[in-house]
Amino acid sequence: MLVNSDFSQRAIVASDDYQWVASPQSGVERVMLDRIGGEKARATSIVRYAPESCFPQHSHPGGEEILVLSGAFSEGDEHYPAGFYLRNPPGSVHQPSSQEGAIIFVKLRQMQPGEKDRVRIDTRDPSNWQEHGRRQICHLFASGTEKVTLQHLQPGEPIFTKSVSNAEWLVVFGQIETADQSFECGSWMRLPEGTYPDMVAGSHGATVYLKTGCLLVFPEEA
């Protein structure tokens, strides 16, 4: 299966255009943002857990990155409410579930094989945020190939202040606006190399998940 698989092109999924697709597990649905492969795929998705839904224990050979958007997401007896960022390295094993229901942003099979650390960051904790000019930034992950942050932008502030090699963003709160379109909370975009000064926070500001650097597509998946 190929969904937004050409990384040389801009890819957009606005929140108004979500198409929920049932997963193999009852009570769990997903919106496919990009995907290369079948059920075991390099994938970026929005995943919705109904209350009291779960997956059997399973492994992630290529790692898994999660941002909890609403509700509470659980791994075994560990519970993560909205605002938590999780990073499970390649080879990790877990049993995900949600007692109350949850919506999460998920990236699968997009980590370097050598990545080892298990990351858990509560982005609700003010101590995890730093002032950078007009914006506030919560640093989630950085390596030689990628940088992941959550950023609070003031009204009218651009997402990008310089050219990017490639990038993707998800609106977590507020709006992102361009010259001809407004992107509400939940909207996602992936961008090839270039400059994008016209992408700015809306009149009430915005919070965005932002990944820049190398968006990995491994040779066996291309």
Rank of each mutant, 00 (worst) to 15 (best):
M1P: 04
M1K: 01
M1V: 09
L2R: 15
L2C: 04
V3L: 11
Q9L: 13
Q9Y: 04
R10K: 13
D16S: 14
Y18C: 06
W20E: 05
A22M: 01
S23R: 04
Q25K: 03
Q25F: 15
E29G: 01
M32F: 11
D34F: 12
D34E: 15
I36N: 05
E39Y: 09
T44P: 04
S45W: 01
V47W: 03
V47E: 13
Y49V: 01
Y49A: 02
E52W: 08
S53H: 06
F55K: 02
F55N: 06
H58V: 06
H58A: 08
S59L: 08
E64V: 07
E65S: 07
E65Q: 14
S70Y: 04
S70D: 14
E75V: 06
H79P: 00
P81R: 03
A82Q: 06
G83Q: 11
N88Q: 11
G91D: 10
G91T: 08
S92I: 09
S92M: 09
V93N: 01
H94K: 11
Q95T: 15
P96N: 14
S98H: 02
Q99H: 15
G101T: 08
A102W: 02
L108F: 09
Q110A: 14
M111W: 08
Q112M: 12
P113S: 12
G114N: 09
K116H: 08
V119L: 15
I121H: 02
T123H: 11
R124V: 00
R124G: 10
N128C: 11
Q136D: 13
I137L: 10
I137W: 01
C138P: 01
C138Y: 00
H139L: 12
L140M: 11
F141L: 12
G144Y: 09
G144F: 11
G144K: 08
V148K: 04
T149E: 07
T149H: 01
Q151M: 12
Q151W: 01
H152C: 07
H152V: 05
L153T: 03
E157G: 05
E157S: 07
P158W: 04
K162E: 15
S165A: 12
S165F: 09
N166S: 15
A167T: 04
F173D: 06
G174S: 12
G174M: 10
I176T: 00
I176P: 01
I176L: 15
E177C: 10
E177L: 06
A179K: 06
A179F: 01
D180N: 14
G186E: 05
G186F: 05
W188K: 08
R190D: 07
R190M: 12
L191N: 07
L191M: 15
P192T: 08
P192G: 12
E193K: 15
G194R: 08
Y196S: 00
D198Y: 07
M199R: 02
A201F: 09
H204T: 07
G205L: 10
A206Y: 03
V208Q: 01
V208S: 00
Y209A: 00
Y209E: 05
L215N: 05
L215C: 06
L216N: 09
F218N: 10
F218E: 13
